[in-house]
């Protein structure tokens, strides 16, 4: 790995300033960035650690929804969101392994937007808002394809706001070597209707399975989508599974998520 300058700002303002410099990059938990740097696929000149920035860590359920600081670890979401939004806490508790969860952050996961990551599915299904140091971005506009987001290079995810659905659940079919989702489905039943967000299946990242949403809007039960399966033509085929297999999993996991929703 190439060497770099390291800074640990205490305020969002200082972090933003440090990130505006040429070759600067944010460091969350490092669980994705550090391996990438070891492979020299990323070679930032300066790393700006966000873990000690004031106000970027914590789970706040005082408002109508849930606001999670951008540098909050998966482990903290798993424990602190368990009462208010169990489906989200359950998702966080299933990311990687305990040591990864103790370092990896929600902001890092959403900024990276890995096509097999878990949080993107939660954000899209819940209708979350991604708050940066510059603006609020609705999840619908935020995800823009595999590893692509609406973030500018020097933009920091300071918080993520989740409206809490009437019922919801996340089902993940683990790819046992990487511990990411081979396919993951987040179902959220909200006042505006049902949203079904799928991760791991598509080459363009997280998406909504609208055919299932329509069926579930008239009848929120696994039976309503019995026999329904998503179109595999845009899905990933790799050594872990074919597009057809993934399409099948989307149906199975959606039915399981509906049944488990609470």
């Amino acid at each position: 790995m190439y060497n770099f300058e390291f800074t640990k700002p205490k305020t969002i303002k200082d972090a933003a300033k440090a990130l505006a410099a040429d070759g600067a990059q944010a460091l969350g938990g490092g669980q994705t960035l550090l391996p990438t740097m070891k492979q020299r696929l990323a070679m930032p000149e300066t790393l700006v650690s966000l873990t000690e920035v004031d106000g970027m860590v914590g789970v706040d359920s005082r408002g109508t929804g849930l606001t999670i600081g951008g540098a909050t670890t998966h482990a903290q979401v798993a424990s602190d969101a368990a009462d208010v939004y169990p489906a989200l806490a359950g998702l966080a508790a299933g990311i990687g392994d305990p040591a990864v969860r103790n370092r990896g952050t929600i902001g890092g996961s959403l900024a990276n937007n890995d096509p097999a990551a878990c949080y993107p599915a939660a954000a899209l299904a819940s209708g979350a808002t991604i708050t940066t140091n510059k603006r609020d971005i609705h999840a619908v506009d935020y995800f823009q394809g595999m590893f692509e987001t609406a973030l500018a290079e020097d933009e920091i995810i300071t918080a993520v706001q989740f409206p809490i659905p009437q019922a919801g659940n996340y089902q993940k079919f683990v790819q046992p070597a990487s511990r990411f989702a081979l396919v993951g489905v987040f179902v959220a039943k909200t006042a505006d209707g049902v949203r079904v967000a799928v991760t791991g299946a598509s080459g363009s990242g997280v998406y909504r399975w609208t055919a299932a949403e329509t069926a579930l809007n008239s009848d929120f039960s696994a039976k309503a989508i019995e026999g329904l399966s998503d179109d595999p033509s845009e899905m990933i085929t790799d050594l872990h599974g074919t597009a057809a297999y993934r399409a099948h999993l989307v149906g199975v996991l959606t039915r399981r998520a509906v049944t488990a929703s609470r």
């Binding site: 390291f6 490092g30 550090l34 391996p35 070891k38 392994d97 040591a99 990864v100 103790n102 370092r103």
Partner: peptide, 26 residues
Amino acid sequence: DTSQCGACVVHVNGKAVKSCTMFAVE
């Protein structure tokens, strides 16, 4: 050295972490 095996787990401020995937300056 790629955060897969867990042989390097230590506790930092009471939390188990993979020490190969955290900078010493942190």
